[in-house]
Design a protein around this nucleic acid. Structure first.
Lengths: 238, 238
DNA sequence: TAGATTGTTAATCGATTAACAATC
DNA sequence: TAGATTGTTAATCGATTAACAATC
């Protein structure tokens, strides 16, 4: 008896080969942490690093690190560790950081201006190419290297700057309508700081950072530890 | 044959009863989203809401919502839905938002100042009671209602303002040492915006918001969708 | 070779989801 | 009663972890 076995056609190796599989979400998130450590090690001239050391600096378990890295292929050496320069390159590759990312920030309020000047973006290959706002008091002012554009011209600004990512630093009330315009203008990677769920088509990559939520989660845990310490006091008869 | 069954002793009901169990981390995070919707409904005068409607506005499945809410007890009515006012109260209770949270922000750079003025904190019962920085150029200036204090006096400022939460909006290079001082000063709930893993004792509640990581995760997904659309184009022979 | 550390397996843990009986 | 929607079960899915053979 014969079985028909389908062997995947060999993909010609180009500059940036498509990874064979999707990386688990949790892995992607941790890879960015490893990358940060690796780049610091690169600067300090360290050549090799163990999963244990990477785990330490990312605050996770070493088995977790090895599992994560195994998704990229086998770039470690048993008994030795991982080559810092090579691993850094592999992770950057896998995360798509070799691509040129051009970020437009919509909203030039406190947060938008803070983001525009945030050094952490530039240093990771994210170019902030535009900053926009609807407030005529803000349009035209200089923030860092940029001049604030009128959000009325959103579409042309996105086109002219060839932005391929957008950060929304807007009030909850207006963010959905701006988001719709961004999507319609063809930018499909969006990071929102507005405290609302945005509705976007399936093909849009949307992420959300919610600072009030973070504080609330902290409050939940804080309350719990206060309760348990009070409980402990009570039990010890204090 | 007899089994010994241990029945938990009845806990006297006080103002804020300790929840019987720890809520799953994912549930805590979503509860904050439901709460936001509930409070909007409360303002609009809506009395009752279904799990389906809550799910819609939070961007999750309705089974997920019901499961989350079931951890708080049974506050819904079959065939009807959940009472908006009551559910809002129950969630606030469970999250510890009935407590008075006093937040000190360390770091009065762009981000720290943006956070100090962020309306989302105040509206959720988080009082920003102090803003500190090491830079003598910033010490003394006014930001919103606050005057920037010298981080040299961190301990006394935390004590005088009775802060019980700290937000760290500091450069990676100095954040660990400030964090150590905060912990030593007895504040054990910390939200960090610095792009490094902080090491803290077990009893400290630490959360991290990492904006550069968020953009990198977005880049990963963006790259993937670009690849797959290019792939689709190739296949259709374009 | 001996010591170190990877890569992988299998067990465990936790979260999501569909489905539906319970019940308003 | 009929229609609607909860609360819960059980199946599924995905992520973490310990352990260890492979191998530098």
């Amino acid at each position: 008896m014969w079985s028909v076995v389908l062997i995947p056609a060999q993909i010609p190796e180009g500059e940036s080969p498509v990874p064979a599989r999707e990386l688990p979400a949790a892995t992607v998130s941790r890879l960015t942490l490893y990358l940060r450590t690796l780049d610091a090690l690169l600067v300090s001239g360290t050549e090799s690093v163990s999963s244990e050391a990477l785990a330490e600096s990312a605050g996770v378990g070493s088995a977790n690190v090895r599992k994560d890295l195994s998704h990229l292929g086998s770039y470690g050496t048993r008994g030795v560790g991982y080559d810092v320069a090579n691993l850094s390159r592999q992770i950057s590759q896998a995360l798509g950081l070799t691509h040129e990312w051009r970020v437009a920030i919509v909203g030039a309020g406190n947060l938008g201006r803070a983001l525009a000047r945030y050094a952490g973006f530039e240093s990771r290959g994210f170019d902030v190419v535009a900053l926009l706002d609807a407030d005529q008091m803000l349009v035209g002012i200089e923030v860092g290297w940029l001049r604030v554009s009128d959000v009325m011209n959103l579409e042309s600004v996105l086109k002219n700057t060839r932005a391929n990512m957008v950060v929304l630093a807007l009030p909850a009330t207006v963010v959905q309508s701006v988001c719709d315009r961004v999507v319609a203008a063809g930018v499909h990677s969006i990071l929102s700081f507005a405290p609302v769920a945005l509705s976007v088509p399936d093909y849009v990559n949307l992420r959300k950072v919610d600072m009030a939520t973070e504080l609330q989660i902290l409050a939940y845990h804080a309350k719990r530890s206060q309760h348990s310490s009070m409980e402990a006091q009570r039990r010890t008869g204090a």
